[in-house]
Design a protein around this nucleic acid. Sequence first.
DNA 1: GTGTCAATTGACATCGTGTCAAGCAAAAGG
DNA 2: CCTTTTGCTTGACACGATGTCAATTGACAC
Lengths: 196, 196
Amino acid sequence: MSSPNPDTRKRILQATADLLTEGGGTGVRMSDIAKRAGISRQAVYLHFANRADLLIATTFYVDELKDSDARLAPSRAAKTGSERLDAFIEAWAGYLPEIYPIGRALIDMSPTDEEARSAWAQRMQDMREGCEAAINALKRDGDLAPGMTAPQATDLLWTLLLLPNWEHLTQVCGWSQKQYLKHITATARRLFVMGA
Amino acid sequence: MSSPNPDTRKRILQATADLLTEGGGTGVRMSDIAKRAGISRQAVYLHFANRADLLIATTFYVDELKDSDARLAPSRAAKTGSERLDAFIEAWAGYLPEIYPIGRALIDMSPTDEEARSAWAQRMQDMREGCEAAINALKRDGDLAPGMTAPQATDLLWTLLLLPNWEHLTQVCGWSQKQYLKHITATARRLFVMGA
DNA sequence: GTGTCAATTGACATCGTGTCAAGCAAAAGG
DNA sequence: CCTTTTGCTTGACACGATGTCAATTGACAC
């Protein structure tokens, strides 16, 4: 539970993030993680209570590494509403491939693990609030497309960005990350930005 | 692999579908299925080679039970384009809660199981083609919103309907099935139907 | 040197999947 | 009526993954 060697702990977290990203969130064993981190399987349990605990810690680790400004506070990014929206979408589109496999593995765990589920739900909530801020900024600048309320637009943008969306378009349907970004950006512009 | 008693086979399939629906697609063991079907755990393997085989068969079983006309051939349903679109969305929204948990369990299996993955991808493809047919019918009737091409609209509708979308909105975010249907229907109408 | 800390090793319990051999009850066939 | 076949049961087992535990090593500090 506690952290004997902070450096080893970081190596475990990095190994976990790497392996999950490579494997799409499935089929990663504790022994794989230990091997990649250069330690024994049992030593992982000196740093993390169990698999769920490790995965949750990994989400925070990945968060730390990422510039989260454009993602969480889109109202401060760029100038025009359209640019802000683009920056917001791009920030999430770059974050998704790193965070989603971890969330995927987290949800794959026992469905009764409330801690694991809510840790993931928190990130969904973050995204929801980011969407809200981005749309509100658009509206404040008078750039929101007519005939659409802010709550409607927020829900819709959120649905478009939804992380499992990304997984299925890329993993199951074979879309590239670029295709996904282009699709979402173009759709959002057309839907939400006045006169686009 | 072969089918000793067709009736027992059906009971297994029904039990699998029921349990997966109840559990959201996770945490369902072979022994649970056998118990629900009223047979021994080992007897399941007299009818299905393994877990993946059973799950794939269950998707076909669920398909058989469902009226698939509105879902797969939306161009024949209802009169006006808007009504057709509504019927199409409602058909999928009713199918999702039954089919998705099975697909979820399927994808949760070994990621190397190509057969399992492609069985699921097929259903994604079905949905994609259904979207295409629905949008094309809308365009043929001159009801497609101006400034939007049919391929764009198809992609967008597909993204909105995407099955994992449904799972996350309902399971993780706590939306009711009704909320989901309402959200998607309203969004699609506003986006695709001329003058809505 | 004596602790102490971090990680190692080997062993083990538990649980789920999948396999196998032996047995059993009922229906079908002569 | 007896035999065979069918469909399932029971009990046992191998395997792989998670998680736990006790004993041990190696390094660094006091």
